[in-house]
Measured scan of single mutants.
Amino acid sequence: SEIVVAMYDFQATEAHDLRLERGQEYIILEKNDLHWWRARDKYGSEGYIPSNYVTGKK
């Protein structure tokens, strides 16, 4: 599975969105859409994140 790191904070506005915290790692579950990826955080929460807010883990 692909691990990404959040470059920016993202506040979830929709129920299906996942909040991003800058510097935290997330697991990508689905990339069915170019701009919104389904991800899981370290607490096990899942939701959609803006793909341009994250970068591949170095």
Rank of each mutant, 00 (worst) to 15 (best):
S1I: 15
S1D: 13
E2S: 09
E2Q: 11
E2C: 14
E2W: 14
E2A: 09
E2T: 09
I3L: 10
I3G: 03
I3D: 01
I3T: 09
I3H: 07
V4Q: 04
V4G: 04
V4M: 11
V4S: 02
V5A: 02
V5P: 01
V5T: 08
A6W: 03
A6M: 00
A6K: 00
A6N: 04
A6E: 00
M7H: 05
M7T: 08
Y8D: 05
Y8K: 11
Y8G: 04
D9C: 07
D9G: 06
D9I: 04
D9E: 06
D9R: 03
F10V: 05
F10L: 08
F10H: 07
F10T: 04
F10C: 08
F10S: 03
F10A: 02
Q11R: 11
Q11S: 11
Q11M: 13
A12W: 03
A12N: 07
T13E: 11
T13D: 08
E14G: 15
E14L: 12
E14A: 13
A15I: 12
A15N: 10
A15W: 12
H16K: 14
H16Q: 12
H16G: 15
D17Y: 15
D17F: 15
L18V: 02
L18M: 06
R19T: 15
R19V: 10
R19M: 11
R19G: 12
R19Y: 08
L20R: 01
L20I: 04
L20D: 02
L20Q: 01
L20H: 00
E21V: 13
E21Y: 09
E21W: 07
E21G: 02
E21D: 08
R22P: 04
R22L: 07
R22Q: 11
R22N: 05
R22F: 09
R22H: 07
G23V: 03
G23S: 03
G23N: 06
G23L: 05
Q24C: 10
Q24T: 04
Q24R: 05
Q24Y: 07
Q24P: 00
E25W: 11
Y26K: 00
Y26G: 00
I27H: 08
I28D: 00
I28H: 00
I28C: 04
L29E: 00
E30F: 07
E30G: 06
E30D: 12
E30Y: 07
E30A: 09
K31E: 02
K31V: 04
K31I: 05
K31N: 07
K31F: 05
K31R: 11
K31W: 05
N32I: 13
N32L: 12
N32V: 12
D33S: 11
D33P: 02
D33A: 07
D33R: 07
D33M: 08
D33H: 10
L34T: 13
L34E: 14
L34A: 14
H35E: 10
H35S: 09
H35D: 10
H35L: 14
H35W: 11
W36H: 06
W36T: 08
W36E: 03
W36F: 08
W37E: 01
W37R: 00
W37V: 00
W37Q: 00
R38A: 05
R38F: 15
R38N: 04
A39S: 03
A39D: 03
A39V: 11
A39Q: 01
A39R: 00
A39T: 02
R40K: 10
R40V: 07
R40G: 02
R40P: 01
D41Y: 03
D41K: 02
D41V: 00
K42P: 07
K42G: 06
Y43F: 11
Y43P: 00
Y43G: 06
Y43R: 07
Y43A: 08
Y43M: 08
Y43Q: 08
G44C: 06
G44W: 03
G44M: 06
S45F: 13
S45L: 14
S45N: 15
E46A: 03
E46N: 03
E46T: 08
E46W: 03
E46R: 02
G47P: 00
G47I: 03
G47C: 07
G47Q: 02
G47W: 03
G47E: 01
Y48H: 06
I49G: 01
I49F: 06
I49K: 00
I49M: 02
I49R: 01
I49Q: 01
I49H: 01
P50Y: 04
P50L: 05
P50A: 04
S51N: 07
S51K: 07
S51A: 13
S51Y: 07
N52H: 13
N52S: 14
Y53T: 04
Y53I: 06
Y53H: 11
Y53D: 02
V54G: 00
V54Y: 02
V54I: 06
V54C: 05
V54Q: 01
T55N: 07
T55L: 09
G56P: 15
G56C: 11
G56T: 15
G56M: 12
G56A: 15
K57E: 10
K58Q: 14
K58P: 14
K58N: 14
K58C: 15
K58G: 14
K58L: 15
K58F: 14
